[in-house]
C-alpha cells in the first residue's frame, strides 16, 4: 500500500500522541512528564488540523490564491490555536510548581514526592504515616526536608 500524504500525517499525529501517552504513563520524573505532555498535545493538535484538511485546497484566507479554489476548514485551525495557548499556560504553571517543589523536597521524582506528600499529610493530621509495602521499615519514605529557617 503506497502511503499517501494524509495517511503519513495521520501516522505522525498518532505516533506523537502515543509517544506522549507512553511517556506520561511510564516516566516518574516530573520535568520529563511535562515534556511528554507537550508531545501528546502536539499529536492531538496535528490530528485536529488533519480533521479539517481536504486534498488540493488552499489556506482559508480570502484573496490569497485563485478565487474559485476550495479552501480548508477554518474551524479546526481556530480550535488548535486555542488549544496551543491553553497548553502553554498549563505548562508554565507546571514548571513554576516544579521549581517550588524542587526547592522544598529536593527531588522531582513523583514516586518519592508521593511518599513525601503522604508523610507530610499524615504528620499534619496526626495519623500514622502510611507504610509502604515493598520497602523495609528502615527505608521508608524519607521524612521531608524541614523548612529552612527564614533569613531576616
Amino acid at each position: 500500500m503506497a502511503l499517501d500524504f494524509v495517511s503519513i500525517l495521520y501516522i505522525g499525529a498518532l505516533g506523537l500522541l502515543l509517544l506522549g501517552t507512553f511517556g506520561l504513563v511510564t516516566t516518574t520524573h516530573l520535568f520529563r512528564l511535562i515534556l511528554a505532555l507537550a508531545l501528546a498535545e502536539a499529536g492531538v493538535n496535528l490530528l485536529l488540523i488533519l480533521s479539517g484538511y481536504r486534498g488540493g485546497a488552499q489556506p482559508p484566507i480570502l484573496g490569497f490564491g485563485p478565487q474559485d479554489m476550495p479552501m480548508v476548514d477554518p474551524i479546526p485551525q481556530a480550535l488548535v490555536l486555542t488549544a496551543i495557548v491553553i497548553g502553554v499556560g498549563v505548562q508554565a504553571l507546571a514548571v513554576a510548581a516544579a521549581v517550588r517543589i524542587y526547592r522544598r523536597y529536593g527531588t522531582l521524582d513523583l514516586v518519592a514526592l508521593k511518599a513525601h506528600l503522604e508523610g507530610d499529610l499524615a504528620r499534619k493530621q496526626g495519623i500514622a504515616p502510611p507504610k509502604s509495602a515493598e520497602k523495609p521499615a528502615g527505608e521508608r519514605p524519607l521524612s521531608p526536608v524541614p523548612p529552612r529557617p527564614q533569613e531576616p
Binding site: 499517501d4 500524504f5 494524509v6 495517511s7 495521520y10 488533519l50 480533521s51 479539517g52 484538511y53 481536504r54 486534498g55 482559508p60 479552501m71 476548514d73 477554518p74 474551524i75 479546526p76
Partner: peptide, 14 residues
C-alpha cells in the same frame, strides 16, 4: 473520512 471531511459548519463559514 480523512482528507475529505464532511464540511458542515466549515463550508458555511467559508
Amino acid at each position: 473520512p480523512l482528507g475529505a471531511p464532511p464540511l458542515v459548519a466549515g463550508a458555511a463559514i467559508l
